[in-house]
Design a protein around this nucleic acid. Structure first.
Lengths: 197, 197
DNA sequence: GGTTTTGGTCAGCGTCATTGACACATTTTT
DNA sequence: AAAAATGTGTCAATGACGCTGACCAAAACC
């Protein structure tokens, strides 16, 4: 980029219109690049940990959002992730079987499966979080608080209306704590043998 | 999030240490959410166009970076994308066959295949670009110039050292124009029949 | 009792990435 | 001139992660 940032181009005022347009275009191509490289490297650290455990990014997303909202229903999780039931099943089922995620039946609506993290799941989620935390903290420190606020504003703007609503909801109930003892638990997982229900 | 953004917590100063830590954690979890939702919705528009043409995001990335640096070699492109030769081949070959990308042999090193966009490729790249441009412009306008600068700083910080170098190189030579007439072109593609060498 | 909602599952498909091995032309080195 | 290194293409197999369509069961709603 010829100029650093936002101000008017320091170049000749002749053909400024075209120049402005050019800058706009370069600015936006830069945004594309930044998002591509930035997102890729942001996820790289966690991906590495996941690979060791034969898990993928999709598993991480489930751990993340279940951790963020324990007791979330399958339907809500589907809405947040924006994938199909079948796709979720392929990552959720192994997570349950391997004891990372716990299912319990809903108190009000017994059809619902409320999801929460087991201690093992919390540990893994935290490990992944710490890895990304370091990475983001570095970027935040280098950029400074004002930049961080700007980053947030732009990223919010990049989200669609639906995602903004979901994010709001996520921020509201930070941790609605799951059932203390996930009493009417559901089969599967390495836990007790299928209850004689 | 209990508090809005950056300022110190408005809550009681008692246990401020813990509270600050908590805020840090929530701040960083928010960053994860923002990156997930933001990147997803950022790419959604282009993905839609691509789907109509039976192309994928990987094809877009090739179009983008070849358009950004016409005459790029296969090796350099591999370095930027961070994928393997085989993976690139699977998207690049169709793009060449369908007349989006042009290959020409290197002038200095005739082993090299210099890649550039055909008019058809440029048109598609532009169409995809315009879609994302609108989306990003909206976010930029809503957030304001200061925020945009902050966004850039943070995104740069999220990139690894390698990616920063690549981005620098991309910004330096904005458009090193390909061979005027891509003389020693290479077979394939819907172009002329194999020149009588 | 009938309908809707919530969730699970089977079967098949597409995209985008991987590894490993090999082939070929060209350039560089010895 | 022979050997080694480089740049690229390609075959085969694999895995992760999305999709659609179909169908089933339990619970809730009316």
């Amino acid at each position: 980029m010829p100029d650093t940032a936002d101000g008017p181009p320091t170049a000749a005022p002749v053909g400024a219109g075209r120049n402005l347009l050019f800058l706009r275009e370069e600015e936006l191509r830069l945004a594309q690049d930044l998002l591509f490289f930035g997102y890729r490297d942001f996820t790289a650290g966690a991906d590495q940990i996941l690979a060791e455990l034969d898990l993928g990014r999709a598993h991480h997303r489930v751990l993340h959002f279940v951790g963020r909202r324990p007791g979330i229903t399958v339907g809500d999780l589907l809405g947040i992730l924006g994938i199909t039931k079948q796709s979720l099943g392929r990552v959720l089922t192994p997570l349950i079987e391997q004891g990372y995620v716990l299912q319990s039946t809903g108190r009000n609506d017994r059809r619902q499966r409320l999801l929460s993290l087991t201690p093992k799941g919390e540990a893994l989620e935290r490990r992944l979080f710490e890895r990304q935390r370091e990475w983001v903290m570095r970027a935040y420190r280098e950029a400074g608080p004002v930049a961080v606020e700007g980053f947030r504003r732009v990223m919010r703007g990049l989200m669609g209306a639906e995602a903004r609503g979901q994010l709001e909801r996520l921020e509201q109930r930070p941790r609605p704590l799951p059932p203390e003892r996930p009493s009417p638990q559901i089969g599967r997982g390495p836990g007790e043998p299928p209850s004689p229900a």
